[in-house]
């Protein structure tokens, strides 16, 4: 089984995100970047499949030079090869355009399965898996918490989380795209020999020219959806402390949960 994992490098969820003065994006200085947590599950699943069936695991990621760290992290975990889509022109690509670039690279590769996270914890679009599958004319399953590959490597059965504690069991022929959800597995911690080996691996770099696309097809120019007017949400109100008699206090909590938090 040859598995491709598409992953993204995102700011650590704890990072303070600041908006640039123009409101067109975020300030990238002082950000601690990590591998998108959902993509970690994808990498781990790919490695488990490799351990069971043999084959290779190839990591593909798009972004500036810093993205190499995330690719190396996956290589350190045990992936075999890395592909880095690096070109200033790619910057600002929306999900559709990202999927288009990825599909362009992937369609000439040999693969049985594409794994990725169910969403990237930066722009939270949760789209690339679906767009990519569509562009490659493949079936996909998202929010996957369980994956079983048949012994012949031809089909897969995925467990998909939906609402209200209901899970769907979906069977699909391979190749297919699977988008990982937390719970799929417990990602491994890279061993030090793995880290050292990963440092020496050559990561294949692909830019606009080698990809064979034009600047107008990619990046912000090629995107169908534009993002603007970055703004802070209304400040979360400081916690309210309710004192008083229990019946009144409870009424107040319920009111807050219902009216303000919209949780019931």
């Amino acid at each position: 089984m040859d598995v491709i994992v598409c992953l993204k490098q995102v700011p650590d969820t704890e990072t303070k995100i600041k908006i640039n003065p123009e409101g067109t994006g975020i300030v990238t200085e002082g950000i601690k970047y990590v591998m998108n947590p959902y993509d970690e599950y994808a990498v781990e699943e790919a490695l488990k499949i490799k351990e069971k069936f043999g084959g290779t695991v190839t990591i593909i990621s798009m972004g500036p030079a810093r993205v190499v760290d995330a690719i190396r992290n996956a290589l350190a975990m045990g992936a075999d090869e890395g592909v880095h889509l690096n070109d200033p022109a790619f910057e600002g690509s929306d999900s559709f355009t990202t999927a288009k670039i990825l599909s362009k690279v992937i369609k000439d590769m040999k693969y049985d399965l594409i794994l990725t996270g169910k969403q990237a914890m930066d722009f939270d679009c949760s789209q690339v898996f679906g767009c990519l599958a569509e562009l490659l004319e493949l079936p996909y399953v998202s929010v996957v918490t369980g994956l079983e590959i048949s012994a012949d490597g031809k089909t897969a059965i995925a467990k998909r989380e939906t609402e209200g504690g209901v899970e769907e069991i979906i069977q699909m022929p391979l190749p297919a795209v699977v988008a990982a959800q937390k719970g799929l597995n417990e990602p491994r911690y890279a061993s030090l020999p793995g880290i050292m080996k990963a440092k020496k691996k050559v990561i294949k770099e692909i830019n606009l020219t080698t990809l064979g696309m034009t600047a107008s097809e990619v990046g912000e120019a090629g995107s169908k959806m534009k993002t603007k007017n970055f703004q802070l949400p209304p400040e979360r109100k400081a916690g309210k402390k309710i004192e008083g008699e229990p019946p009144e206090a409870v009424k107040e909590i319920v009111r807050m949960l219902h009216d303000e938090a919209k949780l019931i």
Partner: peptide, 23 residues
């Protein structure tokens, strides 16, 4: 932007070659 909506619309958008603002 429900469990099925989040799953479905990426395919719809890609097939229609259009943009999708999710969630």
């Amino acid at each position: 932007a429900t469990a099925s909506g989040k799953d479905l619309f990426p395919r719809v958008a890609a097939r229609l070659q259009t943009g999708l603002a999710s969630d």
